[in-house]
Amino acid sequence: MSVYPYFVAAWLMLVGGYGIVRSRNLVHAVVSLSVAQAGTYVLLLAVGYQRGALAPVFGSTTKPNKHVVDPVVQAMTLTDIVVSATVTALLLALAVQVNKRQGTPDPDELQALKG
């Protein structure tokens, strides 16, 4: 069981990739990419987790101590989420443009991209 969360992360990444490959709609492809990126959040948080440890936020009830989960990977997860949001926004804007220019959101029907 000690590797189970890592496999959840890998599963999310691969299932997101599967969604992109099978996509019939560009918006669906963008959401699939978000799912794949969610795998990286799970991986980062799983790497930093410690059983029984508290959140790395101290206060009057929790005096500073080292028995907390890793704050560095949590900060990196925040960066990851922001990057994911910006990529999603840009890709959705592209999807809007493709739908307007080509008249279809289906990536399979985009003639210029056929190879």
């Binding site: 069981m1 000690s2 590797v3 189970y4 969360p5 890592y6 799983a46 790497v47 930093g48 987790y49 410690q50 059983r51 790395p56 500073p64 101590n65 080292k66 907390v68 989960v69 890793d70 704050p71 560095v72 990977v73």
Partner: peptide
């Protein structure tokens, strides 16, 4: 081969806190 999930070894944590 990774350190087991939930372990107590977190080097970055020990420096960041």
């Amino acid at each position: 081969k990774m350190p087991a999930f939930g372990g107590s070894m977190h080097l970055y944590r020990d420096l960041a806190v």
